[in-house]
């Protein structure tokens, strides 16, 4: 799962504080949402891709995430084509009706907005991947502590994360065990297929409870709650490059907002 992995590296982006990275992520999202002209959004996408190449993002793994989304994306482009009346658009070129299907006009602007949606979705996936791939899990935990999450919650998140591979392996075993008893997961109609998940879900659920019970004991005997002031072993800190980066990101965002305010970048 590309979202949960850490891509070791020593790029500037890796070295940025997690807060700077999240600030960058928010800025990218704001910019890609205030414009609806695909050209402008494409420009933002270009800058995101530049960083993606720079950190060496594993694109082949991203593809496996994209593939199931492709039909949905095509639908989005088609539906938005219908979704907007000509007078929604500012520019004359966008108001042009390509085809009128019984009072539902397909406008040039509608198709363009569809394309914008498509690019925005890609931006969201790639930019979040960039942040998660370049940030250690510890940094996220430290961030949660910085914004005063209760420790019990932080521990829960941390354990959940640590248990993902364990539970995946367990699911595999459960699937094997039930298939060995003749459960055919491939065949059957939709409803049957859902019913066939029950023999998988229940052992997983019961297993989860068993893990939780044992973990509770394991955590207690390791002194959970012994001291109100837990030792902080690892902390995050903003350094020089963070301030420079944040200034640049702010500047870029302000310029973007200004461009939008003077009426550019909309259809």
């Amino acid at each position: 799962m590309v979202f949960l992995e850490y891509l070791p590296g020593n790029s500037i982006f890796h070295r940025l504080d997690v807060r700077s990275k999240i600030f960058w992520l928010i800025a990218v999202l704001i910019l890609s949402f205030i414009f609806n002209d695909p050209l402008y959004v494409l420009g933002i996408m270009g800058s995101v891709l530049f960083i993606a190449f720079y950190i060496g993002l594993p694109f082949n793994r991203l593809r496996t995430m994209f593939q199931p989304l492709i039909p949905i994306m095509i639908c989005i482009v088609l539906f938005t084509g219908f979704g907007f009346q000509p007078d929604y658009f500012v520019r004359d070129a966008s108001r042009k009706v390509l085809l009128d299907l019984f009072g539902l006009p397909i406008t040039v602007g509608g198709i363009m907005i569809g394309i914008t949606f498509f690019i925005r979705l890609m931006i969201i996936i790639v930019s979040t991947s960039i942040v998660t791939l370049t940030t250690r899990f510890d940094d996220f935990i430290a961030l949660m502590r910085k914004i005063h999450f209760p420790y019990a919650l932080i521990l829960a998140v941390s354990i959940a994360f640590r248990f993902i591979p364990t539970l995946m392996k367990e699911l595999e075993t459960v699937m094997d065990a039930q298939q060995a008893r003749g459960l055919d997961l491939e065949r059957g109609k939709f409803i049957q297929k859902i019913k066939k998940r029950i023999p998988l879900m229940i052992p997983m659920l019961v297993g989860g409870i068993r893990h939780a019970e044992n973990l509770a004991i394991a955590i207690l005997v390791r002194g959970f709650g012994a001291s109100k002031n837990r030792t902080i072993l690892y902390d995050i800190s903003m350094s020089g490059i963070d301030y420079v980066a944040c200034a640049l990101i702010s500047l870029a965002t302000l310029i973007g907002v200004y461009i939008r305010l003077i009426g550019l970048g909309i259809l």
Binding site: D138, S158, T166, H211, N214, L215, I219, R222, G223, T231
Partner: peptide, 22 residues
């Protein structure tokens, strides 16, 4: 499996002594 709370080895060993607030 049920005794490991940390993502990395060091994190995991740190859990106990950090709880003690050393």
């Amino acid at each position: 499996e049920d005794q490991i709370v940390g993502v990395t080895v060091k994190d995991d060993v740190a859990f106990g002594p950090c709880n003690l607030g050393l």
